[in-house]
Write a protein that binds this DNA or RNA. Structure first.
Lengths: 120, 120
DNA sequence: GTAACGTACAACCATTTGGTTGTACGTTAG
DNA sequence: CTAACGTACAACCAAATGGTTGTACGTTAC
């Protein structure tokens, strides 16, 4: 386990979190979580050009958070919840370090009973 | 509950996820989760200038993921696990939409028993 | 067949980001 | 006291980001 932190995985996390760091993209993600929608349907609700929304969807797709599939003359977008779960797992791993730290502190207390911490 | 999505909260999430979208910053976060460290201690391990690391710490601090406190002639950095938890909660909320969708599908199956889906 | 729709993609622009170097300032060690 | 250390901050630069408009192309409706 000396691999430190796998560069590919880190790159994937960069993409994941960057994709999540935009409110329009998070909103698209929410909407496509609830149910799939075409790009133009999505675009209709934002105060920006169709092309801009198209780019946001592309960013989400590159991050694996969303998949586009052709359906008639439109492309239908649906969210990929597993990918969101991956991001969440990465955060959980971060928090785990904290808990590990706490348990190290516990160890100190446990291994050091001769410490005179009793009340007088 | 018509507030759609609170703009301030969304801005905070933008900052949070953007701060997390950089491997150096995630690494700093990991290290300061395990135990606090001075900025120069942190900087020593990266192939970039001290000022660059200083900026990364500033981004983490602005996102609330880390706090700096003066200690002698150095500034000691420690992580703020609650903030990571907030980001994780936001992702969990996203995933919850997916589960909600599944339960809606369940409702359909439950509410629509007369649907003639039997095999012939 | 033609018009309208939905999408893709290129070119362009302003702003932000991630990095650099250089300078200044407080604190501690010797 | 002075030198070295740790930090802050400004100015600058290249590249990425988030947006625009314009053009082209396949599909559907009529």
């Amino acid at each position: 386990m000396v691999v430190r932190y796998d560069s590919e995985h880190e790159e994937a996390l960069d993409q994941l979190f960057r994709a999540l760091a935009d409110r329009t993209r998070r909103d698209i993600l929410r909407r496509t979580m609830v149910g799939e929608a075409s790009i133009s349907t999505l675009a209709a609700d934002y105060a920006m050009s169709f092309a801009a929304v198209q780019k946001h969807v592309a960013v989400l797709e590159a991050a694996g958070l969303v998949v586009k599939s052709p359906q008639g003359r439109e492309r239908v977008v649906r969210a990929e919840p597993e990918r969101v779960a991956e991001a969440r797992a990465a955060l959980a791993a971060l928090e785990a370090l904290w808990h590990h730290r706490l348990s190290r502190l516990d160890e100190l207390f446990a291994e050091d009973p001769p410490s005179p911490c009793k009340e007088p």
